[in-house]
Design a protein around this nucleic acid. Structure first.
Lengths: 246, 246
DNA sequence: CCTTCCGTTAGGCTC
DNA sequence: GAGCCTAGCGGAAGG
């Protein structure tokens, strides 16, 4: 395909806010927070309706270069090449794509208003525990969630056990790290300052990294194994009951 | 376009290891480490030559759903819909795309053997300092890089200053955080244990976060401002000299 | 605006 | 293979 025609199609696609697909042979140069260069090769260039831009090589999940939504995109013919530039400010970044030859340019107006729903997140784990506190242990009673702990951050769940002890619960959807233990200790210090007594500390996660296991023992942090999947199932069950009860 | 024809084109594209672009109206369901669902809408489905798969909505930098390279991809006609499934094991994950109608299916064999080069990384900052130690201060002499500091990790650069003091240098390509200061202190503790005297501590970065500034002052950590860009320029210059001298 | 934290983080490296 | 760290991380939420 002729480069001038390709340029016109791309410009028209941007004007009419379409998703544009360009297949061709191109070089790619990036400069901003870092810098990169990529010599000539056949790639897929995607320009989206919101001004985001992606360059994909024939393999790999990730784009080799990109620009997030809101970039200003310029299309020019320069020295016998088709040059696409995507700029953004804050941080100031420039992505320059020099297209040497084009196999195809397609533009589509896509309609997509569906809602994306994600399950088995850390948020869902917290909701499952609030719904069924015995997941932590028998007699556990949550009092607050997302409670501010000074400048240490927010405590996932603050509650009391069956003996009336304060319990600070930290939830992770993946294996707990030593860093997570430190985070929990930070919360506990704030709580201790505030309440004048040391609370129990429970780290809830599907597992622990080896380095974290040592830290748990060292600081007397308890560990409760719980997977995001199990929590999701519990919430589904809860919804089923709600529906049944009406 | 007819769904049966679309299915055949996709299968043929996979057989011949091409990059496949499908534009159409589709639902997407994912279940694996987490789970998600996305109702009917017009999207771009990309199947790459290496078995990676991406579903892109009309806006946004990131794919809404994906499967990394190496997934097994099945294409079926089922209940009047075109169903594309991408599975992987370890972790076991399934992405199911139900295509209800197709606007276009294109397949391309792309040739791309160019090398991708990234500059202005933390690695480059270290190399620039090793090449030109006065970037830290006059008289600084690097002795080792990536030196093991017990279980605390690896010291970016260990050296001595003009007075013979040990110097531990930690490099960050972005503004330094309080966490980075802690990391440096961890190294220093190990070095102190080993050498029996406290080394100077220098954090090298383009800037500091506010929380980090307090930690710097508190623990007597010095800060040296240096940008990845400057380091990249220095290395370029170095290469130029090598070429000139060599 | 900046900071903090999560992510199906991905990807790379070491042990 | 598991553990650990970095990223042009992106994105969201909060101050």
């Amino acid at each position: 395909m002729d480069l001038a025609e390709a340029a016109e199609r791309i410009r028209e696609g941007i004007r009419s806010r379409k998703l544009i697909l360009v297949l061709g042979s191109m070089e790619v140069y990036y400069e901003g927070r870092a810098a990169s260069s990529l010599g000539l090769g056949e790639r897929l260039l995607i320009i989206k309706q919101d001004g985001s831009l992606l360059v994909h090589r024939p393999t790999g999940y990730e784009p080799v270069n990109w620009q997030p939504p809101g970039s200003r995109i310029d299309v020019d013919l320069r020295d016998g090449a088709l040059v696409v530039e995507a700029r953004r400010i804050s941080p100031e970044e420039l992505l320059r794509i020099i297209v040497r030859s084009v196999r195809s340019v397609e533009a589509y107006r896509l309609e997509d208003s569906a809602e994306f729903a994600m399950y088995a997140t850390e948020e869902e784990m917290k909701r499952a525990i609030l719904l069924e506190p015995s997941l932590i242990e028998e007699g556990f009673k949550p009092m607050e969630d997302e409670r501010r702990a000074g400048r240490a951050g927010f405590i996932d769940i603050l509650g009391v056990d069956s003996s009336g002890n304060l319990v600070v619960v930290e939830i992770k959807r993946r294996n707990a790290t030593a860093e997570d233990v430190k985070q929990l200790l930070g919360y506990v210090k704030e709580i201790e300052d505030e309440f004048g007594r040391k609370p129990r500390m429970i780290l809830v996660a599907p597992g622990v990294q080896k380095s974290a296991a040592k830290e748990l023992a060292r600081y007397g942090v308890e560990f409760k194994c719980l997977t995001p999947r199990r929590c999701h199932e519990i919430l589904q069950r809860g919804r089923g009951l709600d529906r049944f009860l009406g």
